[in-house]
Design a protein around this nucleic acid. Sequence first.
DNA 1: TAGATTGTTAATCGATTAACAATC
DNA 2: TAGATTGTTAATCGATTAACAATC
Lengths: 213, 213
Amino acid sequence: MDRKNISKAVIQRLPRYYRYLGELLEEQTLRISSQELSERMHVTSSQIRQDLNQFGGFGQQGYGYNVEVLYHEIGKILGIDRKHNMIVVGAGNLAQAIANYTNFERRGFVIRALFDRDPKLIGRTFRDIPVYPMEQLETFIRENDIHMAAICIPKGSAIPVAERLVSCGIKAIWNFAHTDLNVPEDVVVENVHLSESLMRLSYRLAGSDAKEE
Amino acid sequence: MDRKNISKAVIQRLPRYYRYLGELLEEQTLRISSQELSERMHVTSSQIRQDLNQFGGFGQQGYGYNVEVLYHEIGKILGIDRKHNMIVVGAGNLAQAIANYTNFERRGFVIRALFDRDPKLIGRTFRDIPVYPMEQLETFIRENDIHMAAICIPKGSAIPVAERLVSCGIKAIWNFAHTDLNVPEDVVVENVHLSESLMRLSYRLAGSDAKEE
DNA sequence: TAGATTGTTAATCGATTAACAATC
DNA sequence: TAGATTGTTAATCGATTAACAATC
């Protein structure tokens, strides 16, 4: 499957399909048509069929899609059919929130350690996940088959930390620091810029006020 | 200014412009051309000019843009020239992270209270922000001019909580629960679905592996 | 004035939707 | 077989980029 030409817009939507299919699975729904799913998700059925067909013909004419099959196929596409060993740089509130959230682990994302420079945090554990000093970052990554890292530290140190992560082979960075990272082509970065998200909300709030008047 | 026809793509980029202009301001840069800014931000200069012109002619031919003026203009557009009173529903790790992050307040987003149903959390404070019981939600919102709320609770209770928020006049919801909310037209929702963000990272990681081979 | 750079129109590119033949 | 619904092509719509006249 050549993923190079899958558009960003489709990838953006893929996890949402996965979530809705998971809900259908819990409701023990066996099959669903693009039409029914489109009503639930508030998107067009055309888009659903178009999106899914980027990856293969998962449906069946006259029947629709088998919920369980489609759920697992999308899971495979998203790479959550395998285990991902992760670390989190930073051990503050946000890092703790991520460490304590058990659902990531259910999806195959296993957090092996947190790293912080604060001596008060080093040695503590969250759900049995230990906090180590920053000095041990590289060694731990190399010795524990880690290939994903979350950055949950203030923006000032995020860029040098990203460089350290890249230098010891990390290929995917989940970046919560309020800055853009500059990484080599073969490293992927997913930014979660919360301030920007909040500003977009505030923009739209201002806009909806204006329209009311 | 008619905001109805501003495209989603532009709004998505607006806070990022704001961030870069803030950095330029800190560096005491007085003026910047769309060309220079495009190199810093890795977007086309054409897009920058096109985007900014949706809101007005902030630049000057032959000169470029005055950094300070543009910074404040975008701030106004984003609605961060005024104060927004917020509450956070939930007082767990994620809510604490949000409460402790002082930068939101610097942008005008003032968190007035957290709400939780856990008696162990009620009465605690984070940066002087108190945690109240869920029963006081409506009264507090009505009496303290709150018009934004963050939802940081498990998905099971997110939908009824959103309904309670809407019923007492909340017009903007920052939703961290892993579910979609169904709200009236005049209420805006900004979703932060962390699991989905992580899955997109994992998808791209898998894709970059494939390309290497 | 000459040079620089915006604002804006036109051209291109990509994404979404509509339509329908294929097929279960 | 008849009905339903996909997979896929074509049409539409929107967003990005290129180009350049306007203008500081």
